[in-house]
Nucleic acid binder design. Structure first.
Lengths: 350, 350
DNA sequence: TTCTGGCACTCTCTTTACGAGAGTGCCAAT
DNA sequence: ATTGGCACTCTCGTAAAGAGAGTGCCAGAA
């Protein structure tokens, strides 16, 4: 009963059988017996020989029987080994890639783009899709404007790129005239445009401290205002989900209580957000099988995620949630490509 | 077997029994037998007498037996009669009302307000809440500004009321300078501010036709631009749902296929939108029992809705979806109050 | 006339039993 | 090392039987 068996612990035969078993179970959802394996594994072995190997695999904790006389089912460790070492990823049909690319056009607004991505993940995989919305800090600021709403209330308009506008309302401590606001905007536009929000904020904070005495009061106010503008509204901590209902289709998730908790988690989004955030620093596709995600609610689920990048920086994560018994060889490339396409779409606009 | 029995067709005794039966069934979800009714209805009748009455009610199509030897269950017609004539609505605890009022503060943005309302409906009733977002046409326009994004691309900023800002991006046929845009905004602000979007649009269309020759070209352009600005983005055809997962708790919705369809409908939102739109012209709380909504998906559900008003005009609808066997006496006042409070919150801001 | 107790009947639900089917583990033979 | 054979175990579907709940109807009481 090795704790974490490695692929090198397995004979070729055992590998082949494990692979066939997992594939078969993923396809049919039925425990796989020695007889079936003897027919389908392409090894020309009798059922009896296969039973010997299966006993070994069971000792290693890679498969288990639901009961004495059912076939074998992969354990989480079995899935893990399968995914890490045995899985043959089937590249996506180029028609499918094209379809995804079409639906993730750079012309779309960020919000629409993110919703598209989530919907596509769900539709293509028939499971639940999720997209962590991109961190706006990375988007380059193109223009900043102030608009007076009433005494001491100012609307800030941040134009981030071709299709992206953010509004924030600030309550000020004193009244500024429209002209003053215009001057302040001009001043800020001169020095912050083209940088991302995080950088802008740092720069403004620096300037505020460093050269406080050299400036006239309006310029100082401008910097303070600008700082407030980019500081506020960081709360875009959100995740866009789609197609949760697909999970109703999977028999292993039939326990009403489990399902309820799962849907409740989708609704709260907090748990999902935590899950995605913990993937944001990983590179490439990441896979959590069963409990690996550390979230009890997802015990019978697997999660496949991939971060997406804009300008070489990771700005978000996307992925799917489905039953542990999911077609990894298809889901993985879908998640991978979707992350690339979403990144590309967000990137290729001014 | 009268087709649509009226309350006048029933003896006092029958009414009392029907009421008790429906209440009992709503509470326990179990078919109600004559013995139980004899004990609980407070009529001091033997089970046998009650059986006679039940036979009559069954003939009238108000109750039915799942099988020969179960108790009786209300039919949709039975629920209808109950809701229309027998239901005693329990006014909400003033503490509860206060809680709702707190969470629906006029200070909140429209979006937050609507999400709160939906969440509250769901949380308080333990069913699915829904809110048709308010028609923006009714909100008074306070200010309109144009901002040049690039050649021939202009950002329109519509300030609707204290906490409400809308952005729209327009693609123009020719280039305008920032100065021109400012002039146009000034011109429009002078003549449209304080009216709602629908009125503004009509007014602009009228002016455009009527006085085309009397204006200089910039003013004409301003009107055209304004018209485009208020015309675009009508697509706020949306509904905010919450707490769908609560429906997993109801045994009568256990059929996975039904449930799946229901969740799919929630996801698509189209069906729900249609349902809400058909209630928008009704006054006060409206109740659809089972198939009455005309949407097959909701066969085993009831829907309770109420429109909400701003400035004396209905601007949206909200409600809940739950099993037909729902506690109407509680749900109805909750929906009613929530509609009033949401309307009040939207109304009482400048 | 209205109500009630009694009784036969019906239907569901649970338990039990049992055989078919599928799969295992082990062993002896190849 | 591999295989066929065999006894064993477990699930699943079906059938049978009994308990429980409730009905419908009738004859007698109020």
């Amino acid at each position: 009963m090795t704790e974490t068996p490695s692929i090198t612990d397995l004979s070729d035969r055992a590998r082949q059988l494990l692979r066939t078993l997992v594939e078969s179970y993923i396809r049919d959802g039925q425990p796989v017996g020695s007889r079936t394996l003897s027919r389908t594994a392409g090894l020309d072995l009798s059922a009896a020989s296969i039973r010997n190997v299966m006993a070994d695999l069971e000792d290693m904790g890679l498969v288990s029987s639901p009961h004495t006389s059912a076939g074998r089912v992969p354990t989480p460790a079995g899935y893990r080994l399968f995914v890490d070492s045995l899985l043959e990823i089937k590249p996506l049909d180029s028609r499918e890639v094209e379809l995804l690319r079409e639906r993730l056009s750079p012309d779309l607004e960020t919000k629409v783009l993110v919703e598209s991505a989530s919907g596509l993940l769900s539709a293509v995989t028939q499971m639940a899709g999720m997209v962590r919305v991109p961190r706006p800090e990375r988007a380059a600021l193109r223009q900043i404007e102030f608009m007076k709403l009433s005494e001491q209330r100012v609307l800030v308009i941040l134009v981030m790129n071709k299709n992206e506008v953010q509004n924030r309302i600030l309550e000020l401590d004193r009244d500024y005239s429209a002209g003053e606001l215009q001057q302040m905007a001009n001043y800020l536009n001169d020095r912050v445009v083209g940088r991302d929000l995080a950088t802008v904020r740092q720069q403004l904070l620096r300037e505020m401290k460093a050269v406080r005495e050299h400036m006239n009061s309006l310029m100082l106010a401008a910097i303070e205002l600008g700082e407030q503008a980019v500081a506020a509204g960081q709360g875009v901590d959100d995740v866009v989900l789609a197609g949760q209902f697909h999970l109703l289709d999977y028999a292993e998730l039939t326990s009403v209580e489990k399902l309820r908790q799962l849907f409740e988690a989708f609704n709260e989004k907090r748990e999902i957000l935590g899950l995605l955030d913990q993937c944001i620093h990983a590179q490439g596709v990441q896979i959590f099988i069963g409990q690996e995600s550390g979230h009890r609610i997802l015990d019978d689920c697997s999660v496949v995620t991939a971060p997406y990048e804009v300008g070489g920086h990771v700005v978000g994560v996307l992925g799917v949630i489905g039953p542990t018994r999911m077609p990894y060889n298809r889901v993985i490339p879908v998640v991978d490509i979707t992350a690339r396409l979403l990144g590309a779409a967000l990137n290729s606009r001014d």
